[in-house]
Design a protein around this nucleic acid. Structure first.
Lengths: 217, 217
DNA sequence: GTATGTGAAGTTATTCACAGCG
DNA sequence: CGCTGTGAATAACTTCACATAC
């Protein structure tokens, strides 16, 4: 399955994921004052081939100059345009645990086009708590806030057993994309996209790789 | 590139990633008292086909019973064995920010075979702070702890510009796998595996999907 | 009847290799 | 001469379809 619903050719998921990686590297380059970059340099960062970088970008147009490379600032704007993050997205967080607090205090989201405008929980002890720039509210107030701020994306950090029912509330409130930290699958209408985040899985991948690496490889 | 360094056939990266997903679902099933599961049920959770589930598992052996399915508890142990998480891994965290605190307080890692045994920073104001079950120590004490506890995996949560030099210290201390939250690529000897975590990228994927979805798709 | 395990087929993604441009 | 953009070739992954076993 390719994820694009756009009008042009279908865009492979792996390409879209790599665009985010290119963007991270371009942000770092821009911060260091670098003006130009070649596909080879971008490839090194993502550990792919240079041809892959060029092909990923070519899916959306022609952005480089032959013999020269890509303009760092231009390419940042191009990728932001592709990803849809030139305008800011309002985002809510549901489930006010430790992770929620960490996310609310993280500055990177805002810089990259995602403003966390509300946080919700059902636990009365948490409600009213200030957390970074936002106050934790009861989940009953969620739909109002979502409608008022035109929120289309949500981050779900509730326990696994509460994930499905909470996600349904989000969908009912008009949310179209959910970043799901809960270790539970979500069944939702097809227009609601889900991006599953599994932190344990990253350690498991490393465990697998380290376990299966033998001396001399 | 396939990641396996094992002796048998090479194992595709996507298959290993899905094993973690199957494991999450199996853990949930076990918690609900479910005893048996079919490839079709597992596939639904991961949004793949049933044949894919069977093929992923068949890479490592035959674990099901024809006409019946898979035993949930058995399959959990099988996947843990494959991933190398039946024995516990000791893990350190470097960079004692909000995220570090959230990770240190998260119980899921311990339950799944990853014990966070130390946390390190360079900021003198943070050193000595208690954080969940561990005390923040100066990074100079890191190598000792790593050697003493036979730590092979690390989580890196330092700012992007400090990531490379900190990762080099980890590699020098004998770390073989790094879960990297910093938005910076790491260049390390090939025996040190890196799993890049980019939380912003998840929101960017959703932004792309939501932006490119038109009514009626 | 039900569900696995697996060759064969099909699809998707990556890499090669070079024409074309600066 | 360097680096992009891209058709063609290759490699990787997924799905089909069915023999096999319960």
């Amino acid at each position: 399955m390719t994820s694009s619903g756009g009008l042009g050719g279908a865009i492979p998921d792996p390409s879209v994921r790599r665009l985010s990686a290119y963007l991270r590297h371009l942000e770092n380059l821009a911060a260091s004052g670098v003006k130009r970059v070649s596909s080879r340099q971008l490839a090194e960062y993502v550990k792919g081939g240079d041809a892959q970088v060029r092909r990923d970008l070519a899916l959306f147009g022609q952005f480089g100059r032959r013999g020269v490379g890509y303009d760092v600032e231009d390419l940042i704007q191009v990728i932001r345009t592709i990803l849809g993050t030139r305008a800011q997205w309002n985002v809510v967080v549901v489930g006010a645990g430790q992770l929620c607090q960490a996310l609310l205090r993280y500055r990177g989201f805002k810089e990259r086009g995602f403003a966390l405008v509300g946080a919700f929980d059902t636990d009365p002890r948490k409600i009213g708590t200030q957390c970074g720039p936002v106050t934790i509210r009861h989940i009953d107030a969620m739909e109002d806030i979502i409608r008022k701020h035109e929120v289309r994306l949500a981050i779900l950090t509730v326990p696994a057993q509460a994930a499905q029912q909470t996600a349904e509330k989000l969908a009912a409130a008009g949310i179209e994309g959910i970043m799901n930290f809960a270790g539970a699958g979500l069944s939702l209408p097809p227009h609601v996209h889900v991006s599953q985040v599994d932190l344990t899985a990253h350690l498991e991948q490393l465990s697998f790789l380290v376990s299966s690496t033998r001396a001399g490889q």
